[in-house]
Every structure is written in structure tokens, then in C-alpha cells.
């Protein structure tokens, strides 16, 4: 369904046809859940927060402006809901040395992140993603899994497109550092 059709649905929901709202969870609940479980890796909490996201969206539906797609708006709510939930918990993320990040060759990162058949590396990559900060996890999930554009990511996170590009670039380098540190630990 196109964005235009979704706008028509939204108008009808605001006019009292609440049952039409079921279209949105049917279409987006899985993607929203995938993003939230990446930020909050507890199944029950992630399910609850996914529900909260849709309820918040329903409450604020009249404030939705068609300046972005409905899915982008929904991801923004999901991200803010998940971030608010993590504020109660103390999350420790590894610190990265700026100098180290700057001196990692791009080719090395590119070749490592293209090794899709190396199972051991994929496991380390999975573990490395878990260690990234919330913003980086969100960027990686939405960009690679949901295939969102840079401008959509900027809208979800409230950043500029340039900023998103820089953060994505740095997130890949952070993954490289984390994977290599694990490899060194094993040796």
C-alpha cells in the first residue's frame, strides 16, 4: 500500500473507524519488534514495548503530518520508547579510541563485513552488534535489515543526513574493532 493510501486510512481512523488501525500492526509489528528487540534484548519487554509503540501512535495519530512516511514516524516512536525504557537500566558500552578508529583502513572493514560464509565471524559479529550503543544499533538495524534510506534514518533519529552517514561509517569501524578484539582474546 502506498503512503497516500495510508493517509486515507489515517483520516478514516481519526473519523472513528478504529478497526482500520489493525492494518498498521499487521504490516509493521514485526519490523518494529525487530528494532526494539535489538535495543532491548528481552523478549517479553520487547513485546510490551512494541505494543506501547502502537498505542502511542494511535493516541498521537492526529499529530502525524505527512512530511515523512508513516513507517518512519512509527520507527521514531519505537526508538524513543525503547530508549526511554533503557534509561531505567544502566547499560555499559565499550569506549572506543578515536585515533584507533580513524586509522582502521576502509578496505579491511569492507572485506571483513563481506565474509558472509564465515560462521565463526558471523557469531562474533552478532555479539559485536550487541555491544554497540543504542543509536548505532538502531542505525545498523534500520539501514541493513529494514533497508531504510539515509534521509529516513535521519528523520527517525533526529539527525542530519551527513551525521547519519558519519555515524554509520564509524559504527562499521567499531564492529571491526570489537570483532578483532574478540579474536585476539581467543588467541
Amino acid at each position: 500500500m502506498e503512503n497516500k493510501d495510508e493517509s486515507i486510512y489515517i483520516k478514516r481512523i481519526l473519523n472513528g473507524e478504529t478497526n482500520l488501525f489493525s492494518y498498521f500492526p499487521e504490516r509493521y509489528s514485526r519490523s518494529i519488534y525487530s528494532l526494539i528487540i535489538r535495543i532491548i534484548p528481552i523478549k517479553e519487554d520487547a513485546e510490551e514495548l512494541t505494543q506501547d509503540t502502537f498505542i502511542k501512535a494511535f493516541r498521537k495519530l492526529d499529530t502525524f503530518k505527512a512530511d515523512c512516511s508513516f513507517s518512519t514516524w512509527l520507527y521514531r516512536i519505537a526508538y524513543n520508547t525503547a530508549v526511554s525504557a533503557t534509561r531505567k537500566k544502566k547499560i555499559v558500552v565499550p569506549a572506543f579510541d578515536e585515533y584507533t578508529l580513524e586509522n582502521i583502513p576502509d578496505d579491511a572493514v569492507d572485506s571483513m563485513l563481506d565474509k558472509e560464509d564465515d560462521e565463526a565471524m558471523l557469531l562474533r559479529l552478532e555479539s559485536a552488534i550487541e555491544q554497540l550503543n543504542l543509536e548505532d544499533k538502531t542505525l545498523i538495524t534500520l539501514y541493513y535489515m529494514e533497508e531504510k534510506s539515509i534521509s529516513e534514518l535521519a528523520s527517525v533519529l533526529g539527525l542530519t543526513s551527513e551525521n547519519v552517514k558519519v555515524k554509520l561509517y564509524r559504527a562499521r569501524k567499531k564492529l571491526f574493532v570489537l570483532i578483532n578484539s574478540k579474536e585476539n582474546d581467543r588467541r
Partner: peptide
Amino acid sequence: EDKALKKVLKVHNNTLLPVEFN
């Protein structure tokens, strides 16, 4: 293309919501 990243995230995406969720 960062195929490894896409593959890892795709595997994680297989986590399903309960049937009664919606």
C-alpha cells in the same frame, strides 16, 4: 554491500511475535 551484516541481522529477524499479538 556488507553481506555479513545483512545475514546476521536477517537471522535475528526470524524471532516471531506471538500469534495472538495483533
